[in-house]
Simulated scan of single mutants.
Amino acid sequence: MKKTRITMALIGLAAMALTACGGGKAPETTAAPTTAEVTTEATTAAEETKAEAVEAQTVTIAAAASLEKSFTEKLIPMFEEKFPGITIEGTYDSSGKLQTQIEEGAPVDLFFSAATKQMDALDEKGMIAEGTKKNLLENKIVFIVTTGEEGNYSAFEDIKNAETIALGDPESVPVGQYSKEALTNLNLWDEVSAKTSFGTNVTEVLNWVSEGSAKAGIVYATDAAQKPDQVVVVAEAPEGSVSKAIYPVGIIKDSPNPEGAQKFAEFLQSDEAMKVFTDGGFVAAE
């Protein structure tokens, strides 16, 4: 009997000790987060950080008229979806006009010219932010006629046979400068210019030919591709007759929105943006 009482007492003491130490109930544990949960949280955090990092702003670009379709239809919507805090507003005209507007103080953040001449002029005046100028695209110079007229021509030089001709103004329109260069080198400038109407930008030249008010003209290949049913490309400017049509991009030194301008400039150099350009007929500048 005495031995039984001692054993029962020891069992009781052991039970009390276990209860005091929590041994009477297994400690509760919190399940470790799954890989999917960790990934989701990390992605959400990254998106929130990105959104906070982009301050709401409107970036103004001044771009050659031949770039308008690529920008308005695809590139700007793509960029604004990627950076919802930044709005892009574009002005599209001849590069010479845009250069003048920038020189006169227009609040432009980024300039995209259809020729190096205008960009270099601004750069020489210290108006382009250091290290931001880049030759991005190349275009081709082509002789076009109104659809239905193509049977009368077979070579670039045949433009001299057209009754009425449309060219860009070589004083301010890059495509006009390229046109004059090519025709001068082919000894055709005097003959052709005598029956030419000069447009204020390449879009105007394209419209005159597509509408038939001019039977022939010289534009960029990318512009001709916009109206395949209304104009026909007869030929490219002969090799060696004209300089390469290079499109440089640069950020204005006194840009009101340098952060947004930098992001947009970087986006224009991305693979996804370059695909839009090449789909539109441009090629990457070498």
Rank of each mutant, 00 (worst) to 15 (best):
P107S: 06
F79Y: 06
Q99R: 15
K97M: 11
S66Q: 12
T40R: 05
G96D: 01
T43C: 00
A42W: 03
G105T: 08
S94I: 04
T44N: 15
E52R: 13
T29H: 11
I102D: 07
A65Q: 07
S94M: 06
I61L: 07
T40N: 12
P107E: 07
I88R: 05
T91Y: 10
A14I: 15
T58G: 10
I102H: 11
E37V: 09
A31H: 05
P33I: 11
A62F: 15
G90F: 01
E37M: 10
K74L: 08
K69E: 01
P84S: 00
L75G: 02
Q101G: 08
A63H: 04
T60D: 06
A17Y: 04
L13A: 15
T58H: 09
A36S: 15
I76G: 09
T19Y: 14
E48V: 14
A31E: 03
Q57M: 11
A45C: 04
A56E: 14
E55M: 10
E89Y: 12
E52C: 02
M16N: 00
P107A: 02
E73M: 07
T34A: 03
K69C: 00
E41Q: 12
E47L: 10
P84Y: 10
P77H: 04
E47Y: 03
G23R: 11
A15M: 09
T30C: 08
E52W: 08
L18A: 07
E47R: 04
A64G: 13
E68T: 10
I102N: 13
K25D: 00
S95P: 05
E37D: 11
A31M: 14
T39K: 07
A45L: 14
A20K: 09
A26C: 07
F83C: 04
T19C: 12
L75R: 02
S70W: 00
E47H: 02
A36G: 02
K74A: 14
A65H: 02
S66N: 14
F71D: 02
V54K: 02
Q101M: 13
D93T: 06
T87I: 00
P27Y: 13
L67A: 05
C21K: 15
T60K: 14
P84Q: 10
K50N: 09
A45V: 08
T34R: 11
